[in-house]
């Protein structure tokens, strides 16, 4: 008989935690404010290397990274982090279709183009957090 096990408390915390690796301060402020208002615990960094170190120390439910981040770009983070652990959404400029396609090919789950709607972006991020949450719950059910 299958036994359903809830994720450990720290795992639950992780799934509601987002890391924003965004250099452009206003974009980071707008997104983090919206996410925090919707109950997501947000950590903000402005450098790719710091993002990688933060991910190593603190498990995250999602990473939103600037495609052109100093230190390590969002694209580099996509290549270096394990697939979907956590899911990565890139943030970049509008009209750069080649980069958007490349991002999806390399495993990004989403691509937010600037200028963006914080409301829509927050809904998108929360949806991925929920999906990730469901996937994690499934993986702990046996």
């Amino acid at each position: 008989m299958p036994v359903s096990a809830s994720p450990a408390p720290e795992e639950t915390d992780r799934l509601q935690r987002a890391l924003l690796a965004i250099e452009h301060a206003p974009s980071a402020e707008l997104l983090s404010d919206r996410l925090e208002r919707s109950g997501v615990d947000v950590t903000r960094v402005s450098n790719g290397e710091t993002a990688r170190k933060t991910m190593a120390n603190t498990p995250m439910g999602i990473l939103v990274a600037d495609a052109r981040l100093p230190g390590r770009t969002g694209m580099e983070l996509l290549r270096q982090l394990p697939p979907l652990d956590p899911p990565i959404i890139l943030l970049g400029r509008r009209g750069n279709d080649d980069e958007i396609v490349r991002a999806y090919e390399q495993g990004a789950v989403g691509y937010i183009t600037r200028p963006f709607s914080p409301r829509v972006a927050t809904a998108q991020i929360r949806r991925f957090l929920a999906l990730h949450d469901a996937a994690e719950t499934d993986s702990t059910t046996w």
Binding site: H24, P26, S27, L30, R114, P115, F116, S117, P118, R119, V120
Partner: peptide
């Protein structure tokens, strides 16, 4: 201006 160039839609 810095915020206006970052957002669109209802926020703008």
């Amino acid at each position: 201006g810095v915020y206006a160039t970052s957002v669109r839609g209802q926020e703008l």
